[in-house]
Amino acid sequence: TLFEALYDYEARTEDDLSFHKGEKFQILNSSEGDWWEARSLTTGETGYIPSIYLAPV
């Protein structure tokens, strides 16, 4: 399942991933609670993103 960003997000740590509204992600690991490891389909970068900023596509 792909997810789309509902809002912009600016990374706060080196493990976080910055993204823009409308960016799409492949989720790599969603077992860490509210922060999911994801790969951006726009940039190819991976990192942790807040799941509350996402909606399934």
Rank of each mutant, 00 (worst) to 15 (best):
Y7A: 12
D16R: 15
S31K: 11
D8N: 09
A11Q: 07
L2V: 13
E32A: 12
E45S: 10
G33R: 13
W36N: 01
Q26F: 14
S30D: 13
D34S: 10
L2M: 09
E45D: 09
Y7G: 07
L28C: 06
I52F: 12
L17M: 15
P56I: 09
K24S: 05
S18F: 03
S51D: 02
G22S: 04
I52Q: 13
W35T: 07
L6F: 04
L17T: 03
I52C: 11
K24G: 02
W35A: 06
F25W: 02
F25C: 01
G47P: 00
Y7N: 08
K21C: 05
T46K: 11
I27Y: 02
Y9H: 06
F25D: 00
A55M: 12
Y53M: 13
Y53S: 08
P56V: 09
T1M: 14
Y48C: 07
G22H: 06
P56G: 05
I27W: 01
T46C: 08
L17H: 03
K24H: 10
F3H: 05
T13V: 08
A5G: 03
R39T: 14
I27C: 03
F3L: 03
S40R: 12
I52W: 14
T46F: 07
F19K: 00
T46E: 09
D15Y: 15
D8M: 04
D16E: 15
W35Q: 07
S51P: 08
E4I: 14
L41R: 02
T13D: 12
T1D: 13
T43F: 02
R12V: 12
H20N: 10
Q26W: 14
L2H: 07
Q26H: 11
D16P: 02
T1E: 10
V57R: 02
G47S: 03
Y7L: 10
G44P: 00
R12Q: 15
D8E: 07
T13E: 09
L41D: 04
E37D: 04
T46W: 08
I52N: 13
V57Q: 05
E32V: 11
T1G: 12
D8P: 07
G44D: 06
E45M: 15
S40K: 12
R12A: 11
K24R: 15
K21D: 01
S40I: 05
S31M: 13
E45W: 08
S51N: 07
A5M: 01
S40M: 05
V57P: 04
E10M: 11
S30M: 14
L6D: 02
N29T: 08
P56L: 09
A38D: 01
S40E: 03
L2T: 08
E37L: 15
E23F: 03
G44M: 07
F3R: 03
L17E: 00
Y9T: 01
P50S: 10
N29V: 08
D16G: 15
E4V: 13
A11M: 04
A11G: 11
W35D: 05
G22N: 05
E10C: 07
I49F: 02
T42R: 12
I49E: 00
G22Q: 03
K21R: 11
S31D: 11
F3Y: 15
A11S: 13
Y53T: 04
K24L: 15
T1S: 11
T13G: 15
E45G: 08
E4F: 15
V57T: 08
F3M: 08
P50W: 14
T43D: 03
E14L: 11
K24N: 06
T42C: 08
K21Y: 05
Y9M: 04
F19D: 00
D8C: 05
S18Q: 04
P56T: 06
F25T: 00
D16C: 10
A11Y: 02
F19Q: 00
L28M: 08
G44K: 05
P50E: 07
D15W: 15
E4K: 06
E4L: 11
W36G: 00
F25K: 00
R12P: 09
N29C: 08
E37T: 10
V57I: 11
S31H: 10
D15I: 13
T43P: 00
G47N: 03
S30V: 11
L41E: 09
I27L: 07
H20L: 13
G33A: 14
T42V: 12
G47T: 03
W35F: 12
A38I: 06
S31G: 13
S51C: 09
L6K: 08
E45H: 11
T1L: 14
A55C: 07
E37H: 13
Y48S: 07
R39Q: 12
Y48V: 09
G22A: 04
D34E: 12
D8F: 04
I52G: 14
Y48I: 11
N29F: 07
S51I: 09
F25R: 00
E23A: 05
A5K: 00
F19P: 00
T42S: 12
A55T: 14
R12K: 13
P50G: 06
F3S: 02
G22R: 02
L17D: 00
